[in-house]
Amino acid sequence: MQATTMAATGSMARRQAWTGATLLAFLLLVAVKAQSGGFDSFEIQTMVTSTLALGYLTLAQGVIVIGGGIDLSVGAQMVLFNCLSARLMEGRSFGTCLLIAAGATLAGALLGALTGLVIARSGVPDIIVTLATGFVWSGLALFVLPTPGGGTALEFQTLVLGSGTEFWPPLVGLAVPGLIIWYVLRRTSAGLGIYALGSDRQAAFLAGVPALRAQVTAYAIGGLLCALGGLAATAFTGGGDPRATAGMTATLTSVAAVVLGGIALTGGVGGLLGPVVAVWSLYLIPAIMLARGVDPAYGEAVKGVVIVLVVLIGGLLRRNGRKT
């Protein structure tokens, strides 16, 4: 009994250490950025607003990965809701835009729940299902908005992104859903079921965790967050863009950020703060390179190296930790 408690404390400490390391790395990057290109409230606003959609996607991916799954369609879902909202919001009043946003969020949750249900019922691996649904969502996005366009109300943009150099609105916009979901994950039985399902499917089932409910809940939360990501993209660009490549890149970044932020791809482990900070860190790397006069095209390569190295070193540390 004591051994298990100790092991649990150990893994807890290691997890906190990982989040701490992510935070530290982020602060370091901020310091470097401040030195080489400044880091005032304008820079913060740029960082938070331009990564807002990605932040939501990363939260979505995080919840799903914690539940033992993976979703390769988060980017496509974002693109779909980006196009849908941009098409519907064009030329509408602020109030209508808000209604549309609420409807989109609900629809996102439903789409997510549907994905979760298909995965649970079909027995087809999540990677395959979401690969296929990714095609479907990006096809629908093209159907809704064949070419880049659409629009939104200016007030809606201000609400989501803030005005001038205000960086609080987007930060709050990210933190409030994040905190609510954190509460659901940590304090409700549905949320704990997601952790249980992710850490050991068999054990969770034997312990009476309703696996189907947990899986559907995880994907529903994911879908909701993807819809928020699409709305954030609409606010940020003032329109919609149905091209699928942006979605694919976003999906890949969300997986990378989730792993960098300390969520194990095997499921059941991790929190939500680390991944968001990881998204900001990944944003800062090319920004710093640009400020230092390095060709920003290298940014992508550096990102790749950082992702691989962090996972490699993390894996080595974890293995050593287990040995001692």
Partner: peptide, 12 residues
């Protein structure tokens, strides 16, 4: 993760 990272590296 490795092959995603490799993809990013090659793209860059």
């Amino acid at each position: 993760i490795m092959t995603l990272g490799m993809s990013a590296i090659l793209t860059g």
